[in-house]
């Protein structure tokens, strides 16, 4: 194993982590402000990818596709919030889990009904095609570099939004004390719709970005959804900072686990046996990480103690 390969794998872990952050930021925001578990977040991610694929396919422009993904996801988010989600804020988590589980079924099959059963096509934009040469002879795909960059920009923007702006103040106030902020004359239902749409837009954006290098198909949201839940639980639910740290942690654990565990087992098992055992363990690695974190810190790394 060369140092070069190891560095490239670190980059891969970072890129995977940043992508997970885009997905989990919205989820943790929604939980922090409204106290809602939203299983349908993965469906919004899928809607973003399908909207991007449909518009980019029709116009030939990836940027227009991204815009469409943001718009469609935010619109779907707002619509769902207005019709369904707002009835769930004062319910227990059980009802929220079930209602949003039902939304997954509706969104998935609805998308299949609209777009058919075959995957859609979405390609990376020409400008970002192919690999880039980095210092020290590292070769890395441009598009993945772009994902890392954009993800970091979005993270910074989100931190600034929460820390510096008026909406951010309200969001933080809403996290701290839901009744009080209403009493202070803030239109709480508008704020909730806005936050939900913002979270949805982030998920849709992630879906479109990732859709360019993955398969745009029905059901693409659920595996990512589970990963995003792992992330926000490790980070501490409601904490954007926690989600960021946990995203990178999960991204690195998964990538390096897949890479290193088969090699590790290869030192004392035969090649194909090591492959099978190593890969089996690698697929469980992030869940083991999550269980370990929760056992030592039951509210996650940055979660408020209850």
């Amino acid at each position: 194993m060369s140092a070069l390969l190891f560095i490239e794998q670190l980059l891969n872990g970072l890129q995977f982590g940043v992508m997970l952050f885009l997905m989990s930021a919205g989820l943790t925001l929604i939980f922090g402000v409204m106290g809602l578990i939203n299983l349908a977040h993965g469906s919004i991610y899928m809607i973003g990818a399908f909207a991007a694929a449909a518009v980019a396919g029709a116009t030939g422009s990836f940027v227009l596709g991204l815009g469409a993904a943001l718009a469609a996801a935010a619109a779907a988010g707002a619509l769902v919030e207005l019709t369904v989600i707002r009835r769930l804020y004062d319910r227990d988590h059980l009802d929220q889990v079930l209602a949003t589980f039902a939304l997954i079924l509706i969104f998935s099959e609805g998308t299949r009904w609209l777009f058919g059963s075959f995957p859609l096509f979405l390609d990376v934009p020409d400008a970002l095609r192919g690999p880039a040469e980095l210092p020290f002879g590292i070769v890395y795909p441009r598009y993945r570099l772009a994902i890392i960059l954009i993800g970091l920009v979005v993270a910074a923007g989100l931190f600034a939004l929460i820390a510096k702006t008026r909406i951010g103040v309200r969001i933080r106030a809403g996290e701290a004390d839901r009744e009080m902020i209403g009493a202070l004359g803030v239109d709480i239902s508008k704020l909730y719709t806005l936050v939900f749409a913002l979270g949805a837009a982030l998920a849709g954006f992630a879906g479109a970005m990732v859709g360019a290098i993955q398969s745009v198909e029905v059901g693409m949201g659920e595996p990512v959804l589970i990963l995003a839940f792992v992330v926000i639980v490790i980070g501490g639910i409601g904490s954007i900072r926690g989600a960021f740290v946990a995203s990178i942690l999960v991204g690195l654990t998964d990538t390096l686990g897949r890479f290193l565990l088969p090699i590790l087992f290869g030192t004392f098992l035969d090649a194909s046996g090591a492959n099978i055992v190593g890969t089996a363990l690698a697929s469980m690695a992030i869940y083991i990480l999550m269980a370990a974190v929760l056992i030592f810190r039951p509210t996650g790394l940055f979660g408020a103690a209850t």
């Binding site: 390969l5 794998q9 995977f16 993945r144 990732v210 993955q214 398969s215 990512v224 890479f259």
Partner: peptide, 9 residues
Amino acid sequence: TDYAAELAQ
């Protein structure tokens, strides 16, 4: 869905 680690190898 992500094969970056495998492609590097």
